[in-house]
Nucleic acid binder design. Structure first.
Lengths: 112, 112
DNA sequence: GGTTATGTGCAACCAAACATTGCAGAAGGA
DNA sequence: TCCTTCTGCAATGTTTGGTTGCACATAACC
């Protein structure tokens, strides 16, 4: 009974820098490798590689606009990612609660 | 308004293998590097290193039992991790909903 | 039009992290 | 005791996140 997660999608959002990039793209409604790198502690080239990763898993889309490449978040795919996070989190919570419940039951049995 | 997450904790649960290890430890109520590697597509040594990572961030604890090292999940710390996952997920959801609401408002304005 | 500035992409190189193989030591079971 | 099994350490390979350096294209300015 393992949680079904898309490993590619998960590892894409697993990187801290990429998570912050998604935050920035959401906040500003889009951006380029250059504008993002201005607000991040990494170089433009590193950002460009991350954008490539995000693009491959469909979390962002590119639109050439003159000499710049404009990136924007794919709403549906990010929603999928958010759902996976919530699912894993709640699965763990459920298991922890079940374990706790069993432990308490054992405790009550011992007390008798 | 960035989401506050513990990067060490996040990167610990960010690795797919470590996530599956936590799942297995939860399901079986504990285990050793050897028992885990039997049910994972990696070697015992790789599992041992991952257990070291999980131990350093407090997600698991070790108990020497004879010649074997028994690991079990730390309930409180895993609950913290689950909460962080849920928080990031719900933050993204909220932002997506807000953007969608604004887009719809613009749409209504245009229609008039 | 020509020059300068800005945005992009490619290649080489570095460092850290994930994973492997190989070996040696310690603890149970026959 | 002998053999199995579980563990830990060291050397090595491979992937990934990050950097620097350079070349090229497009836009802006004179």
């Amino acid at each position: 009974m393992t949680v079904a997660v898309d490993d590619d999608l998960w590892s894409a959002i697993g990187d801290p820098t990429r998570r912050r990039m998604l935050d920035l793209l959401l906040a500003d409604g889009g951006g380029t490798a250059t504008t993002l790198s201005d607000r991040l502690p990494v170089t433009r080239q590193a950002v460009a590689k991350h954008l490539g990763v995000l693009d491959r898993v469909g979390l962002v889309h590119v639109t050439p606009a003159g000499r710049e490449m404009r990136y924007r978040v794919d709403d549906a795919q990010l929603a999928r990612a958010a759902a996976q996070l919530a699912e894993v989190g709640s699965t763990w919570d459920a298991r922890l609660r079940r374990i706790k419940r069993i432990a308490e039951a054992v405790q009550r049995t011992r007390e008798r």
